[in-house]
Amino acid sequence: MKLKRSLSMDSQKKETLSGRGSGLESEYHSTPDTVCDVNTLSVLIRKKNVRVVDVRKEEEYAKEHIPGAVSLPLARILEKESPTHCIELLQDIGVNEDLPVVTYDDTFGALAARVAWTFQYIGHQHSSILEVTFSQWKNMGFRTEKKSNSYKWQPHPLKINQSIYADLAYVEKVSSNKVLVDSRERLNFLSEHIPEAVNLPYTMLRADGRVLSKGDDIRRFLQNRGIHENSELVTYCGSVGTLSGLVYYGLKLAGLKNVRLYARSFKEWKALGKPKTEFKDANYWDLSAE
């Protein structure tokens, strides 16, 4: 509670703060468990009241990163995806239960989203993604640094949050209120997808210059599809839950309460030979100009 208050206060200061970096008026209302806007992050960094996590490759971190950030590449989370392994990683970068975490990448937010979701899954509620990529942060004129950062070990309890997680059994369970959301691009979806899934490509939730559109826009996209706030959504993508991680945060930003990530995604579904819906009557791939 205390944290939320301090964050929203910072958000109110936004107007006076903006213009420092780029003159960007943030259109987000920063919330501690979805998306963090650049100005809020700047304030938090100055107050040393945040752990900024760079999920890019270590070499990229070594070249340049956001001030105070620690390096934790997505690959390290994925190499042993057990909750105990992940909670140790979180403790090792000095995060206790109260310290907000903000992740960023340079891959349109998808890797950052997957890491932020993992932290939430193991019990760190206040973990959000930065509203821009590292390149955009730099282009906006915000500061970067080269020195490598490390922080003192902090205790953090492991509290698995099952309410944001979906495994195969969950995906297969029949429920009238459940909507499977395929986050891949349109042509991949048309080729094959989990039966009954709806397509909400991650590219649809992007905005010019930001990793996610405004919540209002995303809400409208969902309303157009007949999906409402009380629907239960399960996002998936092609392999390890990165694109669908981003869509997970897009849906949270739009105010949906009940969203889960099927982290093993379509890769597992296909490997197990589960049924698929395929569409073969058109040569639509030939339209792509690549």
């Binding site: 349109r186 490509p201 590219t203 339209l287 100009a289 690549e290």
Partner: peptide, 13 residues
């Protein structure tokens, strides 16, 4: 360009 990425197949015709 943006519309084709968001709602179509990433290319226009």
């Amino acid at each position: 360009a943006s519309l084709s990425e968001a709602f179509s197949i990433g290319s226009a015709h």
